Simulated assay, not measured.
Amino acid sequence: MSDLLIVTILGIVQGLTEFVPVSSTGHMILVEEFLGSQTFNKGFFDTFLVVVQLPSILAVIVYFWNDINPFVKEKEVFKEKMILWSKIVVGVLPAAVFGLLLDDIISGYLSGVQIIAAMLILYGAVFVVMEKLIGKGKKVEKMSGVSYKLAVAVGFFQCLAMVPGTSRSGATIVGGLLLGLSRAVAAEFSFFLAIPTMFGATLLRLLKHGLTFTPEEWKLTLVGCVVSFVVSYVVIKWFMAYLKKRDFKLFGIYRILVGILVFLSIYY
């Protein structure tokens, strides 16, 4: 398989899985395991898997630009946007603290294929039964209704996704739903949290891996990033529409099936 095709596939997988609750990290590691990365320099491949996340962050910013852009003339709108950003900052603090403390442990001991498969199945089951756990009472229908306390609570749910195979978007959206947010607000706040969270995680790994590419590696990285951005944007748009009418059961079933297939591939 050519290098160009491999990075294209990885860009597609990144875009498809980053913002739906199926675990992008888990899928990327699984693709690496089963597609094979032996044609790449390991240093380049490890860094590529990090860099290709940046276009996904850009896709979130582009899609939600009107909602998060604080550079407006109207004072009231400016105030609302700054309050939103302060809640995002508060919400990302738990992941920032635990990420710095546990990154080496997680990347060293909890990134195995068996762990990923187990988390896919475990949280898949959670998604299947989640509807029964969600309260039927009044929901927070607007972003302005997300308090700082709720923002921090959702941030702690996001920490669950540090274990590969969990899903950052899944953990935060499920957490938001359990805490009383509507589907739309839970999904939007999850996407907003992704901006500083993913940027910080990407920067942390780049500082560890470095960023020294050959001209050919830069070309491959550019291709992967373009594919990742386009697919991420399309998936965000689709997922926001999907959540207005559907629940997480389909994703839960998918996760369980993938997890079972991974275990079967390991042992047979």
Rank of each mutant, 00 (worst) to 15 (best):
K244P: 08
M240R: 06
Q38I: 07
F239Y: 11
A194S: 13
V129I: 11
T8P: 02
R205E: 15
V129G: 07
V20S: 01
S144N: 14
T197S: 12
G15M: 07
F19A: 02
E131D: 12
A241K: 13
V262P: 01
D3C: 03
Q158S: 14
Y109A: 03
A186M: 04
K237M: 07
R205Q: 15
T39I: 15
E33D: 11
S190K: 02
G210E: 09
F78R: 09
W218L: 08
K142I: 14
D67Q: 15
E76V: 10
A125Q: 10
A184C: 09
G145C: 13
V60C: 02
K244A: 14
L100V: 14
M28T: 08
Y123H: 08
G224E: 05
R205W: 14
L49P: 05
L220M: 15
G137R: 10
G108R: 04
F156H: 04
V230Y: 09
I6W: 00
F248D: 01
V20Y: 00
A125W: 06
P55S: 05
A194H: 03
T202H: 09
T166G: 12
F157T: 03
F189Y: 11
E80H: 05
A184V: 12
V97Y: 06
M162C: 07
M198C: 05
S37V: 13
V185Y: 01
W85L: 14
L120Y: 00
A161L: 12
G26E: 02
